[in-house]
Write a protein that binds this DNA or RNA. Structure first.
Length: 955
RNA sequence: GCAGAGGUACCCGAGCUGGUCAAAGGGGCCGGACUUAAGCUCCGGUGCAUAGUGCUUCGCAGGUUCAAAUCCUGCCCUCUGCACCA
């Protein structure tokens, strides 16, 4: 190879072809090997691959390749989450079919992925929009239906006029559609729900044992939002109705001075109809319904409410309290009614103050204290007071809560309960490009499931999309609609709702275990093998931390309970990759970023000069980088190296053209290093063992880093430190063929996870057996059997020596009129090194230098020489206890320095042995070295000589 | 407001189970070698002082300690997620 300079394109396409021909990434269940399931969140195919994908997959591929080299049976699949609205919109634009758009996009992104050399088992690839996949969506749906997890009910739903569809609560952001941003309106519809709340407790509790990042766990906990409390019924005076309210603080029930209903609460209308209060309430309700999120936030600095003119009865105290409607009460949480305790809830307090309602403190901060009104309110746990039912006063915290709940339960006016923020999963979408819900509406039999044998219910392909035909084309497709009732055989109509696409992605990782199965979603044995302990490494964006991950966890549990697997938790280790940033114009004064077309100009808002700032890559700012372009320019390996070296997976990362170029240079240098094997011959030298010792050490640290998914660190060792060690070796005159071959073999393996093509090329040119992509790491046991620490330490000594000498040289130059030509090195006397060694040995025992030190040296033979005693004491102190400002050397010496001292390194010898090299490195003609006292004390440097720190004089 | 992650030299970024930390690595910049030259590559420098041991630095202000980038407290700022959660 290597006659020419580095040409990534030839190398990369060659190896991609060979890997594919040899099928090296194709895996099957193999119980003789430990498995490793490496998975990236599969993409929605929107066209070409973007940089965020590149980052995601480069991380995953590096880990998959690394684990293969570690001897694992690695499942590393790729597929496409290909249902969804954008394909419909694209189809409308070109008057085509979403299917066509989707297939085209998949082909594009797949080609991009293949060009990057990712090591997927492509046989397992699937797209969720194919009947081969959504067939099983439908089957799972029917199974869930049988298990009682599916429900059809009327519910007010979020409706987006633009997208012509229902949105899940989770898909509404700031009261706007998460995709198009249009304001969401409410609409009542019959909907299909999946009863995820039945798993709320398990989903919450098992978070404890999952290896997710802490912030993801917290987000999920908050999302599930379990709160323990009581449901309390308040009878409405003069009515049969009662108001149920949920509270987490039943211990404050005697402080209730009013009730607040959400304006949408059905009881509101009933209570005010025909009264003077009706108009105010209606106005409030309409205000709330119409308010945009932006207005709401501003409005809510001011809590608003209206009296409904009626009263409710506190079930324990019998007291009558007024009923209000308040804009701050959310209809969908709890019961949509709040028992207001202004004495111990800040929000209620503010409300009460505003409307002149009474405030009654019923908790005291200490057992003895009075319950007092204060602002800010006391909302911690306290001792009950003023309960006007003596038996409660003095009860504290949970005991108080339980006492109140018992009292309520005793007279049937309330009960202890748990409330979740998590809601059932609204599955229906009034959209075409999704999995048809396999249900049939029969006038006689009602809603009837499709027979399993009639699955899949296929989406019709003979539809032309256009902007004129809004809504769901299924509703007008007679062929699709008309069907016979599976029960009575009479005329019936198909359900036209399709499923939320989150359904597709909630079990795709199970399908990968057995993706060609045509008789079931997946074989349970295969799923249990690959998903034992969950997906071993799951990589994706933080934006899916709640919804997708929670749905997937729910599915795994639900299918487990259907007997389809025994997994339970789908994901083991989760890594959320950080964001990819790129520079964009930025105005410091306005604190805002602008489109890249403003580079070099002034702020469009205030006219100030724009600076740059690194912000999230995105279309809106135009600060995106095309992976295709970069690969064309530099090759896939270089792009992969850059992206992995740029930052650790979890950290945010800045795109930089110069840094990419530097990665390219690095690749060239590595290439050059491998090329130099050609000029090597049998030429053994001392430095050879150093190089191999470094390789061993580097490989060990590299494995540690990679195991921990610290890819940046790993790449730093494999692509940077290995190279600088190589360069040092060459500077030291090393060029032994046998050594170099050994070193390069180890190195090429280490290069493989991040830059697999070039590594494979090196491997093949070195005559390595088989393909590197399917090999396991060379064991270096022959190397690790020896102790290389002294070899490494000697080299460290030289490096440090050069370092110190270099610094001194610049200083010395200032003091010398003529150019420096000679260096005189005076090494500390042997007895000093011996004393140092002695001290190091003592330090490894539990010797107490402070109390036993002086006694110790007094007994040493050298201490008999009276003239040296002062110097001995001084040295001993410097070595052991140190001074006020500096610790003793035995504490500050590095491991390798200690090794040198313990082995009585002859500094004079090592300096003289390497004098030629040192002279060259220091740009000096000659070097002389001797022990202090064995020659002239040049420039009085004998006094600074210390073990490992010789006195150096330039002349 | 709540939760989480952060603020390290010109920039990015390690370190943060206290001492070996003026602080890895990369980018940029400067200098030297190579070259007709540019590029590439190699070597070195990049807080201040200084013939070595010294001073000032790790968001700001305090504290603990013989010793703090590292531990504690308060404050400021940035980012991410959630948004009146009863």
């Amino acid at each position: 190879m290597c006659k020419m300079s580095y040409n990534p394109h030839d190398i990369e396409s060659k190896w991609q072809r060979i890997w594919s021909l040899e099928g090296v990434f194709e895996v099957e269940v193999d119980h003789s090997k430990p498995k490793f399931y490496c998975l990236e969140m599969f993409p929605y195919p929107s066209g070409n691959m973007h940089m965020g994908h590149v980052r995601n997959y480069s991380i995953g591929d590096a880990m998959a390749r690394f684990q293969r080299m570690r001897g694992k049976n690695v499942l590393y699949p790729m597929g496409y989450d290909s249902f969804g609205m954008p394909a419909e919109n694209a189809a409308k634009k070109e008057s085509g079919h979403p299917h066509t758009v989707t297939e085209r996009n998949i082909a594009m992104i797949r080609a991009d992925q293949e060009r990057m050399g990712y090591s997927y088992d492509w046989r397992r690839m699937f797209a969720t929009s194919t009947p081969e996949y959504y067939h099983w969506n439908q089957q799972l749906f029917l199974k869930f239906h049988e298990a009682g997890l599916v429900e059809r009910r009327f519910a007010p739903v979020n409706w987006c006029n633009d997208c012509d569809t229902v949105l899940a609560n989770e898909q509404v952001k700031n009261n706007r559609c998460w995709r198009c941003g249009l304001e969401v309106v409410q609409k009542d519809m019959a909907q299909w729900f999946l009863k995820m709340t039945e798993y709320a407790d398990e989903l919450l509790n098992e978070l404890e044992d999952i290896e997710f990042p802490e912030n993801v766990k917290t987000m999920q906990r908050n999302w599930i939002g379990r709160s323990q409390g009581a449901h309390i019924n308040f009878k409405v005076v003069g009515s049969e109705s009662s108001i149920g309210a949920f509270t987490t603080r039943p211990d404050t029930i005697f402080g209730v001075t009013f009730l607040t209903l959400s304006p949408e609460h059905p009881l509101c209308k009933e209570l005010v109809s025909g009264t003077d209060y009706h108009d105010d309430w209606e106005k409030l309700r309409n205000d709330c319904a119409r308010m945009t999120e932006f207005e709401r936030i501003n409005m809510l600095k001011e809590k608003k409410g209206v009296p409904l003119g009626r009263f409710a009865i506190n079930p324990l105290s019998g007291e009558e309290v007024p009923i209000y409607a308040g804009n701050f009460v959310v209809a969908s949480y709890g019961t949509g009614a709040v028992m207001a305790v202004p004495g111990h809830d800040q929000r209620d307090y503010d409300f009460a103050k505003k409307y002149g309602l009474p405030i009654r403190p019923v908790l005291s901060k200490t057992r003895e204290a009075e319950a007092i009104e204060e602002n800010p309110v006391f909302d911690g746990l306290g001792w009950m007071a003023n309960s006007n039912m003596g038996s409660f006063d003095g009860l504290y915290g949970n005991e108080a809560k339980e006492a109140v709940i018992s009292a309520l339960e005793a007279d049937g006016t309330g009960y202890g309960t748990v409330q979740y923020r998590l809601k059932d999963w609204l599955l229906s979408r009034q959209r075409f490009w999704g999995t048809p819900i396999p249900m049939i509406h029969c006038d006689d039999c009602g809603v009837v499931p499709v027979n399993y044998s009639d699955l899949p219910v296929k989406l019709p392909l003979d539809i032309k999309f256009s902007w004129e035909n809004s809504g769901n084309p299924l509703e007008n497709n007679e062929v699709f609609l008309n069907v016979k009732c599976p029960k009575c055989g009479g005329k019936a109509r198909r359900e036209t709702d399709t499923m939320d696409t989150f359904f597709d992605s909630s079990w795709y990782f199970l399908r990968f275990a057995d993706s060609s199965n045509s008789s079931a979603p997946f074989d349970s044995d295969k799923a249990n093998y690959w998903l034992d302990g969950g997906v071993d490494l799951y990589i994706g964006g933080i934006e899916h931390a709640v919804m997708h991950l929670l749905y997937a966890r729910f599915f795994t549990k639900a299918t487990r309970d259907l007997g389809m697997n025994s997994v339970g938790e789908p994901f083991g280790r989760l890594v959320c990759q950080g964001m990819l940033n790129a520079p964009a114009p930025f105005c410091v004064d306005c604190n805002s970023e602008y489109h890249i077309e403003n580079f070099g100009g002034d702020c469009p808002n205030c006219g100030a000069e724009l600076t740059t700032r690194s912000v999230k890559m995105g279309k809106s700012l135009g600060n995106t980088v095309s992976p295709g372009e970069m690969v064309t320019k530099f090759g896939a390996d270089t792009v992969r190296l850059f992206i992995l070296f740029g930052a650790n997976p979890e950290a945010g990362m800045d795109w930089s053209d110069t840094a990419l170029e530097s990665s390219s240079r690095q690749m060239n240098q590595i290439f050059e290093a491998f090329k130099s094997l050609e000029s090597a011959s049998l030429n053994p030298k001392d430095i050879d063992s150093w190089l191999l010792a470094r390789a061993l050490d580097n490989q060990t640290r590299w494995i540690d880093a990679m195991e921990g998914v610290s890819l940046r660190e790993g790449v730093m060792i494999s692509h940077y430190e290995m190279l600088s060690d190589w360069q040092w070796y060459r500077r030291r005159g090393g060029l032994d063929r046998e050594t170099i071959e050994r070193f390069l073999c180890i190195w090429s393996e280490m290069l493989a996870p991040a830059t697999p093509h070039i590594a494979e090329e090196f491997w093949s040119s070195l005559g390595g057996t088989g393909l590197l992509a399917s090999n396991t790491l060379s064991g270096l046991s022959d190397l690790s059997d020896s102790d290389w620490s002294l070899v490494l330490a000697r080299e460290d000594y030289l490096r440090e020596f050069i370092d110190t000498a270099r610094n001194l040289r610049t200083l010395a130059e200032k003091h010398s009129e003529s150019p420096l030509s000679r260096m005189v090195v005076q090494v500390a006397s042997k007895w000093k090194s011996e004393l140092a060694s002695n001290a190091i040995n003592l330090a490894s025992t539990d010797f107490d230098f402070k109390s036993q030190g002086h006694e110790h040296i007094r007994n040493l033979p050298i201490f008999e020489n009276e003239t040296m005693r002062g110097e001995i004491f001084q040295l001993w102190t410097t070595l052991t206890t140190g001074s006020k400002k500096k610790r003793g050397r035995i504490h500050t010496w590095s491991k390798s320095q200690k090794i040198l001292l313990l082995n009585y390194l002859d500094e004079v010898e090592i300096i003289n042995q390497n004098s030629e090299f040192l002279a060259m490195a220091l740009d000096i003609e000659s070097i002389t070295s001797y022990f202090v006292g064995e020659g002239e004390d040049v420039a009085g440097k004998a006094r600074v000589a210390f073990p490992l720190e010789p006195g150096i004089a330039f002349v």
